[in-house]
């Protein structure tokens, strides 16, 4: 039985791409590979890739989404970031 740490996503906190993750741009968006957990994650929009790459430039995930994502899409992108935090693709700064 392996233990895992459950990380909650606080969108008001500062986040960044995990240092153990390699991001490879693809036509559909990008592939993210976590070298520690061996998880492979498909980011299926280029806008999401832009948000992930630029997260470290913002004081919070909310600020990044506000600046980079059109208004009608923000809830969807917040859900996507929640999923990426759960997969440990993103980590808190």
């Amino acid at each position: 039985m392996t233990s895992s740490t459950v990380v909650a996503f606080d969108a008001s906190a500062p986040w960044q791409l995990n240092e153990q993750v390699s991001l490879r741009d693809e036509s559909f968006g990008a592939l993210a590979y976590h070298h520690g957990t061996r998880r492979l994650v498909f980011l299926k929009s280029r806008e999401l890739v832009a948000v992930v790459r630029q997260l470290s430039d913002f004081d919070s995930a909310d600020a990044a989404i506000l600046a980079l994502v059109p208004e009608g899409q923000r809830a969807r992108y917040s859900t996507a970031l929640t999923s990426l935090v759960r997969s440990e693709i993103l980590c808190e700064r």
Partner: peptide
Amino acid sequence: ESEELLVEEV
């Protein structure tokens, strides 16, 4: 023309 998942994991 919004319902597709943005993230999938393997």
